[in-house]
Every structure is written in structure tokens, then in C-alpha cells.
Design a protein around this nucleic acid. Structure first.
Lengths: 240, 240
DNA sequence: TAAATAGTGTCTATGAGACACTATCAG
DNA sequence: CTGATAGTGTCTCATAGACACTATTTA
């Protein structure tokens, strides 16, 4: 009967994919993995977002599944993980009607291991907005990555998201640089500092960052502060 | 049923649920349906969000599935439909590991049929923030409904979303009343009008709304205007 | 006339943007 | 000293909020 059809044979495939962002050397990058070429594996050799099928035995829920895959790929806990959305259609996977639950995570570059990327590996950090052709991604992962970049940039316009990409201690100039790297444009120094400080998101630590110039005050995140929403977006830019 | 589970190769169940909002008599309401009591049907008799399993034959993609269910329940096209998020865990459905893709839709009350609700029916409009006990919803639908209400209120703070709840022609006072009904607080008239008019979202039509007082200018949505994002949120309220 | 709602004038407070200015280090 | 980056003072502009005021209808 129709019920059996739905419950037994007609179930779509269910996977979770995560867009993992970091910023290295002022470039926004996302982690990609290269697909293997096992039997029946579509898009063999193509680059894709890290992810895979939900394991109904190991995964208690979708977010646990995302965290498990994140742990497997990077070996660390993400300081920021949010659900991005879900994609599902009859045609996105040649194996059949398929759904994926997409998450996006932010990792400070300083927390990364002997960074995968340069040498022989099945993972790489792909620069967003890199000049030259971007690799053709498997499935609809280019759509998902695009949506993640739009969501990230949109939220960076009016939230404190970039603090999750910073090392534990940082200067305000470094934080401003993080915003600028993600947004791809410069921000005005005074306005930036006034906003950040009045948000009471960060607190000074009794240390300075030295260099060949005036030392800068180091800050850290205030404990138990969640994501902060500024009353107005930065500069002049269109929301999503 | 245990047999079915094995045939399903460990794939989770996949459904789509939609939170359908309208505002009637200055009250924000969501459509609920009462679950039947067929064999193996969990939560028989409980109220739930309209939705159901993805039909891998009929539904091209998730949004098409949401639109199909919306059509079945209300008989009309929603002027606004957006994805809310997805929920999935081993325990949300007694039949097994289950996922749902939640959408939220806005319908003008004026577009509704001989409204389901008062008489004997398996559907009803449930007022949000109604005094007295809210009905216990099936599955995790109370969570989903709560998330939808938060998302709606959050976006209403800084977007033109409520225009999708208006009849084709409306006055600015009526639109302000729509904002106030959703947000549950009053807005300042002058600021509201200045914002709306400078957004160039609406345009006057050569008609007035009469009454026992000064007639009000009627407006309609300007064609091809999408959702508008205001630079600042209304009044004093915390974003999500 | 009064009651009611539509719509405006105008002042104040806030905070972003611009940008020049000062401060503090290495060499 | 210079060069470089950190950090501030201060002016202008846009717009939200407050709120009193005027405008136009019916009864």
C-alpha cells in the first residue's frame, strides 16, 4: 500500500555536509575533500564538501552527525557551528532522491593542525574569490558553498561572528582585519572600534602585542557572551 | 513495521512540515492539523503542523513538496515561503530515525476560504500567544513552531515581511497594525511611515479607504520588489 | 459642533562615517 | 629623526523616536 511505498522503498538518501571556513593570510577559505572512486560512488575524483550519510546507529541527531564529521576531518571542536539549510531533490545525486542538511562552521586558523593543503592529501583549503577557475564541485555543492558564503558575509555585516575565527587573544586591528578579509572591503577604524567596545563583547587582558611600532592592546572574548547583533550593518552593503 | 524498517537500508524517514501563518483580527495564528489514527500512526488525535513524507515520485524537490502540501491544506499559493531549517534525530518519531525539513509560509487572511477553525474539522487556526494552555503538539512540532515564531518576529523587526500578509490594497495604518500584531508592541507612527515610504516598497493607488473619519490613502506593493531589509530594526528589541 | 483616524512639522538623541590628529614603539 | 601602526577628537549627516500639531471625514 501507499504507506509501505513511502516508509520502506521510497525513502530518500539523507546526508549532512558542512562548510568549514577559516581565514588564513587574510583570505577566506573553505575545506574541500576529494571524493574516492569506490564502486557506485558518483563524482569520483571531484572535490566536494566534507560530509556523508547519516549513520542511524552512531548519530543521535543531525548536529551530532555534523560534529562527528567535523571531528573526523579536522580533529577539533568548532567554536561556531550553525545550520545553513537543507537541499533535496530527485536529481542532485545519481543514486536517487537525495537530501542533505548543510551546516557551516568557523575555525580559527591558529587552531588548525599541520595544515592540509599543500602536499599530497585528499583535503584542501580552497580560497573563496580566488582568481582563476574554481574547481567544479560534486553534487550541488557549489550551490551550498555559495549559500554559505552569502550567509557568512551577510551575518558578518551586522554580527560579531568573526570573533569565532580569532585566536584566544587578539588586537582590535586584527579583528578589524578579519572583518575586512571576509567582507572584501575596508572598514573605518574609529567606527569599528567604537562599535566593538560599546558592545562589551571583548575585554582587555594585561598584555600588549609588540612589533616595530606602537604596541597594541590585546583582548579576549568575554565569557558567556553569545553572538552579538549590532543595531546597524557595517558600512554600505546590501543584506541578503 | 519492523520488516519495513529493515527493507529501508537504514535510511531515515524524510518529511516536510510547514508553519503557515496568518493574522486575523490582529492576532498571529498558525494552521494546525489533527492527526488521524490509522494503524501504526503515532500521535493519533494530536495536533500537528501540516506536512508529511516526501513523495519521491511526485515531488521534484523539497520546496515543491512544501508547496504541494500547502496547496492541499489551503487551496492557495502562498505569496511567501521560505525554508526555516531542518530537524532530525533518532527519537523525534517512534517509527525510527526521522528528519523533517521545515518551511514557513505567510498567507493574507483575506485570501483564505470559508476559514477552517470554528466548526468540525481536522484543521484549525491556533493563535500564537493565546491565553490559556496551548495544545500539546505531536513530534517536536512545538519546537519547530517556536522557531518559526522567533524567525518571523526577528525578520519583521528589520524587513518588509508583513506586506505578504496584506490584502492587495491597504493603508499604511493597516500595515502598521500588521507589524504591531506580529511584534506584540506598538510602533511610532511617524517613524513607521517615513521608513516605509522611503523604502519605495509601496505605491499609492488612486483610491481611498473611507470610514467614519478622514479617508486613508490606499497603497499596493510595487511590482518586482522583493523582501526589503531596513538599515535598522524597529524600536527597541533584541534580534534573535 | 465632537469624535476619530490620517497624516505632518519639528526637535532631540544616537551613532556611523570621514578624517585629521596624537601616541608609542623599533631602528 | 623616520616609518609604521595604535588609538583619539571632533565634525557632519542620516534617521529613529517623541510628540504635538493640522487635516478630513461622519454623525
Amino acid at each position: 500500500m501507499a504507506q509501505d511505498q513511502r516508509v520502506a522503498q521510497g525513502r530518500p538518501l539523507v546526508s549532512v555536509d558542512t562548510v568549514i571556513f577559516t581565514v588564513r593570510e587574510a583570505r577566506l577559505e573553505a575545506l574541500l575533500v576529494q571524493r574516492g572512486d569506490g564502486p557506485g560512488e558518483p563524482f569520483a575524483g571531484r572535490w566536494a564538501l566534507p560530509g556523508g550519510f547519516v549513520d542511524v546507529v552512531r548519530d543521535a541527531d543531525l548536529e551530532a552527525c555534523a560534529r562527528r564529521k567535523l571531528q573526523e576531518k579536522t580533529g577539533i571542536e568548532a567554536p561556531y557551528l550553525e545550520q545553513l539549510g537543507s537541499w533535496g531533490s530527485a536529481r542532485r545525486d545519481p543514486r536517487g532522491w537525495s537530501t542533505t542538511h548543510a551546516y557551516f562552521a568557523l575555525l580559527p586558523a591558529t587552531s588548525l593542525d599541520p595544515i592540509p593543503g599543500g602536499h599530497v592529501s585528499d583535503t584542501r583549503w580552497q580560497a573563496i574569490d580566488a582568481p582563476g577557475p574554481a574547481p567544479a564541485l560534486a553534487f550541488d555543492h557549489a550551490d551550498i558553498l555559495g549559500a554559505a558564503v552569502r550567509r557568512l558575509r551577510s551575518k558578518v555585516e551586522y554580527t560579531s561572528l568573526p570573533v569565532y575565527l580569532m585566536a584566544p587573544e587578539f588586537t582590535l586591528s586584527e579583528l578589524q582585519g578579519m572583518y575586512e578579509a571576509i567582507l572584501g572591503r575596508e572598514l573605518e577604524k574609529k567606527a569599528f572600534r567604537t562599535r566593538l567596545l560599546s558592545a562589551e563583547l571583548v575585554q582587555p587582558v594585561p598584555r600588549m602585542r609588540g612589533g616595530n611600532n606602537r604596541p597594541a592592546q590585546l583582548f579576549r572574548l568575554r565569557p558567556r557572551r553569545g553572538l552579538h547583533y549590532f543595531a546597524r550593518p557595517f558600512g554600505s552593503a546590501e543584506p541578503p
